[in-house]
Amino acid sequence: MGDTYYAGGYWGPREEPPEACAQRFASFLKGLAVTDSSFTQWYETAKSPKASLSRPLRPDLDELTRFVRKNKDPVFDELGFSLGGWNGAPTAQDDGGFLIRCGSYDSRTINRCVFSLPERGANADRVLNASVLSNTLRVTAAAWDPDWGVAMSHGHRDMVEAQRVPKSPYVGWVTYLALHRGPVPALPAPVRIEPVADKGTLIILTPERFTVGNPEHVALAERVRELLGQAGLLEPLQAQPQASG
Protein backbone atom coordinates (compact mmCIF):
# COMPACT_ATOMS: atom_id res chain seq x y z
CA MET A 1 0.00 0.00 0.00
CA GLY A 2 1.23 3.51 -0.78
CA ASP A 3 1.29 6.56 1.44
CA THR A 4 -1.93 7.71 3.09
CA TYR A 5 -2.65 11.40 3.65
CA TYR A 6 -4.59 13.83 5.79
CA ALA A 7 -5.12 17.58 5.89
CA GLY A 8 -5.92 19.88 8.77
CA GLY A 9 -6.04 23.40 10.15
CA TYR A 10 -5.23 24.14 13.80
CA TRP A 11 -5.73 27.11 16.10
CA GLY A 12 -5.33 27.90 19.77
CA PRO A 13 -7.97 28.66 22.40
CA ARG A 14 -10.70 30.88 20.92
CA GLU A 15 -14.04 31.22 22.63
CA GLU A 16 -16.88 31.49 20.11
CA PRO A 17 -20.65 31.02 20.49
CA PRO A 18 -22.53 28.42 18.45
CA GLU A 19 -23.83 31.07 16.04
CA ALA A 20 -20.27 32.11 15.13
CA CYS A 21 -19.16 28.49 14.68
CA ALA A 22 -22.21 27.84 12.49
CA GLN A 23 -21.36 30.85 10.31
CA ARG A 24 -17.85 29.52 9.83
CA PHE A 25 -19.21 26.03 9.17
CA ALA A 26 -21.56 27.31 6.47
CA SER A 27 -18.68 29.12 4.74
CA PHE A 28 -16.60 25.96 5.01
CA LEU A 29 -19.24 23.74 3.38
CA LYS A 30 -19.81 26.22 0.55
CA GLY A 31 -16.09 26.40 -0.16
CA LEU A 32 -15.65 22.63 -0.14
CA ALA A 33 -18.46 22.18 -2.64
CA VAL A 34 -16.38 23.81 -5.40
CA THR A 35 -13.10 22.12 -4.41
CA ASP A 36 -13.85 18.58 -5.57
CA SER A 37 -16.89 16.53 -6.57
CA SER A 38 -16.43 14.23 -3.56
CA PHE A 39 -16.72 17.28 -1.26
CA THR A 40 -20.11 18.50 -2.49
CA GLN A 41 -22.29 16.58 -0.02
CA TRP A 42 -21.70 15.84 3.63
CA TYR A 43 -23.60 13.99 6.33
CA GLU A 44 -23.51 13.98 10.10
CA THR A 45 -21.43 11.16 11.50
CA ALA A 46 -23.65 8.56 13.16
CA LYS A 47 -23.58 5.00 14.50
CA SER A 48 -24.19 3.51 11.05
CA PRO A 49 -23.86 4.63 7.41
CA LYS A 50 -27.63 4.33 6.98
CA ALA A 51 -28.28 6.64 9.94
CA SER A 52 -25.66 9.09 8.69
CA LEU A 53 -27.16 9.28 5.18
CA SER A 54 -30.45 10.41 6.69
CA ARG A 55 -28.78 13.47 8.22
CA PRO A 56 -27.37 15.71 5.48
CA LEU A 57 -25.29 18.74 6.39
CA ARG A 58 -26.34 21.80 4.40
CA PRO A 59 -24.93 25.36 4.53
CA ASP A 60 -28.09 26.62 6.21
CA LEU A 61 -27.35 28.81 9.22
CA ASP A 62 -30.36 27.76 11.29
CA GLU A 63 -29.72 24.05 10.68
CA LEU A 64 -26.02 24.36 11.39
CA THR A 65 -26.58 26.40 14.54
CA ARG A 66 -28.80 23.61 15.87
CA PHE A 67 -26.17 21.06 14.84
CA VAL A 68 -23.41 22.97 16.63
CA ARG A 69 -25.52 23.44 19.77
CA LYS A 70 -26.32 19.74 20.08
CA ASN A 71 -22.62 18.91 19.80
CA LYS A 72 -21.52 21.08 22.70
CA ASP A 73 -19.29 19.29 25.19
CA PRO A 74 -21.77 17.85 27.71
CA VAL A 75 -19.59 18.50 30.75
CA PHE A 76 -17.11 21.30 30.19
CA ASP A 77 -18.18 24.58 28.55
CA GLU A 78 -14.57 25.51 27.84
CA LEU A 79 -14.16 22.55 25.46
CA GLY A 80 -16.54 24.07 22.93
CA PHE A 81 -18.14 21.98 20.19
CA SER A 82 -17.13 18.75 18.45
CA LEU A 83 -18.48 18.28 14.91
CA GLY A 84 -18.10 15.45 12.42
CA GLY A 85 -18.94 14.99 8.74
CA TRP A 86 -18.76 12.12 6.23
CA ASN A 87 -19.01 12.30 2.44
CA GLY A 88 -21.28 9.25 2.09
CA ALA A 89 -18.92 7.41 -0.27
CA PRO A 90 -20.26 3.93 -1.16
CA THR A 91 -16.87 2.24 -0.71
CA ALA A 92 -14.34 2.52 2.09
CA GLN A 93 -11.49 3.40 -0.27
CA ASP A 94 -13.38 6.52 -1.44
CA ASP A 95 -14.27 7.60 2.09
CA GLY A 96 -13.65 11.16 3.16
CA GLY A 97 -14.57 12.92 6.36
CA PHE A 98 -13.73 15.72 8.74
CA LEU A 99 -13.62 16.26 12.47
CA ILE A 100 -13.87 19.78 13.86
CA ARG A 101 -13.39 21.18 17.33
CA CYS A 102 -14.33 24.85 17.54
CA GLY A 103 -15.14 27.38 20.23
CA SER A 104 -12.82 25.80 22.80
CA TYR A 105 -11.03 28.17 25.12
CA ASP A 106 -9.28 25.55 27.23
CA SER A 107 -5.50 26.05 27.08
CA ARG A 108 -4.89 22.29 26.93
CA THR A 109 -7.10 21.78 23.87
CA ILE A 110 -6.34 22.50 20.23
CA ASN A 111 -9.17 23.71 18.03
CA ARG A 112 -8.93 21.97 14.68
CA CYS A 113 -10.52 20.99 11.39
CA VAL A 114 -8.97 17.72 10.20
CA PHE A 115 -9.74 15.77 7.03
CA SER A 116 -9.38 12.05 6.50
CA LEU A 117 -8.72 11.64 2.79
CA PRO A 118 -9.44 8.74 0.41
CA GLU A 119 -6.64 6.20 0.13
CA ARG A 120 -7.07 4.89 -3.42
CA GLY A 121 -9.54 4.84 -6.26
CA ALA A 122 -11.09 7.60 -8.35
CA ASN A 123 -11.57 10.04 -5.47
CA ALA A 124 -8.00 9.60 -4.30
CA ASP A 125 -6.66 10.08 -7.82
CA ARG A 126 -8.36 13.48 -7.96
CA VAL A 127 -7.95 14.67 -4.36
CA LEU A 128 -4.37 13.62 -3.66
CA ASN A 129 -2.70 16.28 -5.74
CA ALA A 130 -1.14 19.60 -4.84
CA SER A 131 -3.90 21.70 -6.39
CA VAL A 132 -6.88 20.10 -4.61
CA LEU A 133 -5.07 19.87 -1.27
CA SER A 134 -4.02 23.52 -1.57
CA ASN A 135 -7.62 24.52 -2.25
CA THR A 136 -8.81 22.41 0.68
CA LEU A 137 -6.45 24.24 3.02
CA ARG A 138 -7.42 27.54 1.40
CA VAL A 139 -11.10 26.89 2.17
CA THR A 140 -10.22 25.80 5.71
CA ALA A 141 -8.22 28.98 6.24
CA ALA A 142 -10.96 31.24 4.88
CA ALA A 143 -13.64 29.66 7.07
CA TRP A 144 -11.90 28.85 10.35
CA ASP A 145 -8.97 31.31 10.59
CA PRO A 146 -6.49 28.65 11.74
CA ASP A 147 -3.04 29.53 12.98
CA TRP A 148 -1.47 26.91 10.74
CA GLY A 149 -2.42 23.97 8.59
CA VAL A 150 -0.87 21.10 6.68
CA ALA A 151 -1.59 18.41 4.10
CA MET A 152 0.89 15.57 4.48
CA SER A 153 1.28 11.82 4.56
CA HIS A 154 0.95 9.90 7.79
CA GLY A 155 4.36 8.36 7.10
CA HIS A 156 6.03 11.77 6.79
CA ARG A 157 4.31 12.97 9.97
CA ASP A 158 5.58 9.93 11.88
CA MET A 159 9.09 10.44 10.47
CA VAL A 160 9.40 14.04 11.75
CA GLU A 161 7.37 13.76 14.96
CA ALA A 162 10.35 13.32 17.27
CA GLN A 163 11.97 16.63 16.22
CA ARG A 164 8.78 18.67 16.43
CA VAL A 165 7.99 20.98 19.35
CA PRO A 166 4.49 20.15 20.70
CA LYS A 167 1.69 22.30 19.21
CA SER A 168 4.04 23.74 16.57
CA PRO A 169 3.36 23.52 12.83
CA TYR A 170 4.29 20.51 10.76
CA VAL A 171 5.89 21.23 7.40
CA GLY A 172 4.38 18.89 4.84
CA TRP A 173 3.50 18.59 1.18
CA VAL A 174 1.32 21.71 1.55
CA THR A 175 1.69 23.97 4.59
CA TYR A 176 -0.42 26.95 5.62
CA LEU A 177 0.86 29.68 7.97
CA ALA A 178 -1.24 32.62 9.20
CA LEU A 179 0.04 36.10 8.40
CA HIS A 180 0.59 37.02 12.05
CA ARG A 181 3.41 34.47 12.19
CA GLY A 182 5.44 36.73 9.92
CA PRO A 183 6.66 36.89 6.30
CA VAL A 184 7.71 33.68 4.58
CA PRO A 185 11.37 33.81 3.45
CA ALA A 186 12.66 32.84 0.01
CA LEU A 187 12.51 29.08 -0.38
CA PRO A 188 14.34 26.74 -2.79
CA ALA A 189 12.83 25.48 -6.05
CA PRO A 190 10.47 23.83 -6.80
CA VAL A 191 8.67 25.24 -3.74
CA ARG A 192 5.76 27.54 -4.59
CA ILE A 193 4.35 30.21 -2.26
CA GLU A 194 0.76 31.43 -2.65
CA PRO A 195 -1.14 34.07 -0.65
CA VAL A 196 -4.49 33.21 0.93
CA ALA A 197 -6.38 36.54 0.73
CA ASP A 198 -5.69 38.48 3.93
CA LYS A 199 -5.34 35.30 6.01
CA GLY A 200 -1.96 33.73 5.39
CA THR A 201 0.33 31.85 3.03
CA LEU A 202 0.39 28.43 1.40
CA ILE A 203 3.75 26.72 0.88
CA ILE A 204 3.61 23.91 -1.70
CA LEU A 205 6.75 21.78 -1.68
CA THR A 206 6.27 20.01 -4.99
CA PRO A 207 3.60 19.82 -7.71
CA GLU A 208 4.00 16.02 -7.85
CA ARG A 209 2.70 13.72 -5.13
CA PHE A 210 4.95 13.90 -2.06
CA THR A 211 6.07 10.48 -0.84
CA VAL A 212 8.33 9.47 2.05
CA GLY A 213 9.91 6.92 -0.28
CA ASN A 214 11.45 9.76 -2.29
CA PRO A 215 14.58 11.00 -0.47
CA GLU A 216 14.57 14.23 -2.49
CA HIS A 217 11.08 15.04 -1.20
CA VAL A 218 12.08 14.34 2.39
CA ALA A 219 15.26 16.42 2.09
CA LEU A 220 13.34 19.33 0.56
CA ALA A 221 10.79 19.25 3.39
CA GLU A 222 13.59 19.27 5.96
CA ARG A 223 15.35 22.21 4.27
CA VAL A 224 12.12 24.22 4.16
CA ARG A 225 11.43 23.37 7.82
CA GLU A 226 14.89 24.66 8.74
CA LEU A 227 14.39 27.92 6.85
CA LEU A 228 10.94 28.53 8.31
CA GLY A 229 12.23 27.76 11.79
CA GLN A 230 15.12 30.19 11.37
CA ALA A 231 12.58 32.85 10.34
CA GLY A 232 10.63 32.26 13.56
CA LEU A 233 7.52 30.94 11.80
CA LEU A 234 7.19 27.58 13.58
CA GLU A 235 6.46 28.65 17.14
CA PRO A 236 3.82 26.67 19.10
CA LEU A 237 0.15 27.67 19.10
CA GLN A 238 -0.93 30.58 21.26
CA ALA A 239 -4.35 31.73 22.44
CA GLN A 240 -6.19 33.78 19.84
CA PRO A 241 -8.73 36.58 20.27
CA GLN A 242 -12.29 35.99 19.14
CA ALA A 243 -12.43 36.75 15.41
CA SER A 244 -15.22 37.47 13.02
CA GLY A 245 -16.24 34.68 10.63
Rank of each mutant, 00 (worst) to 15 (best):
G172N: 04
V196S: 04
G97H: 06
F210S: 07
G213H: 13
M159P: 01
E78G: 02
V132G: 07
L227N: 07
A130D: 13
A33K: 12
T175E: 10
Q242C: 10
V184R: 12
H154Y: 09
A124I: 01
P74G: 13
D158V: 00
Y43C: 13
F98K: 02
F210T: 02
D158P: 01
E216W: 01
E119C: 02
T65S: 14
R58M: 12
E63Y: 00
A162E: 05
P74K: 13
R55Q: 15
S27T: 15
V165L: 15
N111F: 06
R101N: 10
Y6I: 04
G31F: 04
R120Q: 04
D94V: 08
I100E: 03
R108H: 11
R164C: 01
E222D: 14
I193Y: 11
P90F: 01
A189F: 03
E19P: 03
T140H: 08
A122D: 06
G149D: 02
S168P: 04
T35R: 01
K30H: 00
V68Q: 01
R223F: 02
T35F: 02
V114Q: 14
Q238E: 11
A162H: 00
A26W: 03
V114R: 12
A239T: 08
N129W: 05
Y5D: 13
L128A: 03
Q163F: 01
G245N: 06
T65A: 15
V75W: 12
A33R: 09
A231M: 03
P166K: 04
W42H: 11
P215M: 14
A92T: 14
L53Y: 02
L99T: 06
T91G: 02
D106L: 11
T201P: 06
D198W: 04
G213L: 12
G155H: 07
S48M: 09
P185N: 08
P13R: 10
R14I: 06
K72T: 01
Y43D: 06
D3S: 00
V127E: 04
K167Y: 06
R157P: 00
